[in-house]
Nucleic acid binder design. Structure first.
Lengths: 210, 210
DNA sequence: CGTGGGGTTGACTCAAGTCAATTTGGGTGG
DNA sequence: CCACCCAAATTGACTTGAGTCAACCCCACG
């Protein structure tokens, strides 16, 4: 099933008919509240599954858009997931996927609260890099399929701030940016920035949990 | 199974043996990264289930602490969840719970990025209120079991900021605070603050998603 | 060859963080 | 029962990182 760049796979509030695994291309999911505020909740690469958050309400809670011409493999919710008893393996792995998504969201929450703009961008790049490696691509050179605005939305920052953080990492000779092509020059330094080590060492601890 | 105030139900990295439903009392779950930064990811009231994020790794990813003397009902992970085939109802509802947790986390992410300090506190109070109502307590009067610091950590703010936001809501005659006792005087105004309506109307939109 | 969206940069502002001083209040031991 | 102690909460003064607004560049595309 092919999806053209910029087209929606589904919209928020659509009834859940399919979950999708990405075969080729990239997607973003956008959450929007009743005030018109919008936020990118995640980016999806080949082999990722989209739509898991719809399961409890049986309606999609976010909208999914293709960031480039893409291909997805639809999985019928009723046929594969809902029918009781059958396909225990699928259900088991579904539980795994859901739980993993929760962990991802928790990491995002922690990141949003504990890292400054540079740290967030570094974190984003490192995590992208590791996802590329898992799929057999280079860890150090890749092309972003999302705009600065999308990255900003995902990281809870404005696009201007993303530009400035890119600049900041560039002047430290940690990464090279040309448009949407990225080359990570010094992965260790990048991870150091991600850890927010230079300054603010013991910030954001809430102290001992009792 | 009784847990004393301040004691841990489990720690991050503990192997997953039980999920717990809260019978009485309140809990918080704390996530901490390798830098010692810590964050409260959620508060749990009676009938909530704790530990769901551990399912994919079979190890707890966060630590859970009792905020007051509490009682939990443990559910053996291996006996009830892991065994294939049996108890389809439990598994179905488990999927529901997981998916709902994802939605909650997404709402948190959206909130963190779109609301200022007052809005976040208002949002927190409204959501607490509705949870109390669901359990048969008053919507307008309740006692917080968590400290200002915990609230701040949960909302991505410092405890001083929480104090100031409390003050700000108090001077607007929206809530009354005495220590940890809260009385919501004007729920509508509180929800208005939560929506962040006074200022910053069209902020944080990322524009049309294509 | 103009037009528009994405990207970059600068100047300025302000909400929340930081640090520090002080008050409050619950719990404990004499 | 009271005095004391310590953690929690409050308040003020100051700092700062990221948001805001605006100008401008660049290139792809009709």
């Amino acid at each position: 099933m092919k999806i053209k760049k910029g087209c929606a796979l589904f919209h928020a509030n659509d009834p859940l008919h399919f979950l999708y695994t990405v075969s080729a291309g990239t997607f973003k999911t956008c959450l929007s509240d009743n005030e018109g505020r919008e936020r990118v909740t995640n980016f999806f690469m080949p082999s990722d599954m989209i739509g898991l958050d719809a399961i409890s309400t049986e309606r999609h809670t976010c909208s999914a858009f293709a960031l480039e011409d893409s291909v997805v493999f639809p999985i019928s919710y009723y046929r594969w997931i809902l029918l009781p008893g059958d396909f225990p393996t699928i259900k088991q792995s579904l539980t795994q996927l859901l739980s993993r998504e929760i962990i991802h969201d928790h990491e995002m929450l922690l990141m949003l609260c504990s890292l400054n703009a540079d740290g967030r961008l570094a974190n984003f790049l490192v995590s992208l890099s590791s996802r590329f490696v898992k799929r057999g691509y280079s860890a150090n050179k890749f092309v972003l399929s999302m705009s600065r605005r999308d990255i900003g939305s995902y990281l809870g920052l404005r696009l201007e701030t993303i530009c400035r953080s890119i600049n900041s990492l560039r002047t430290l000779n940690i990464v090279k940016f040309t448009g949407r092509s990225v080359e990570i020059v010094d992965m260790l330094a990048l991870k150091a920035v991600e850890q927010g080590c230079e300054k603010r060492n013991k910030r954001w601890s809430i102290g001992h949990c009792f």
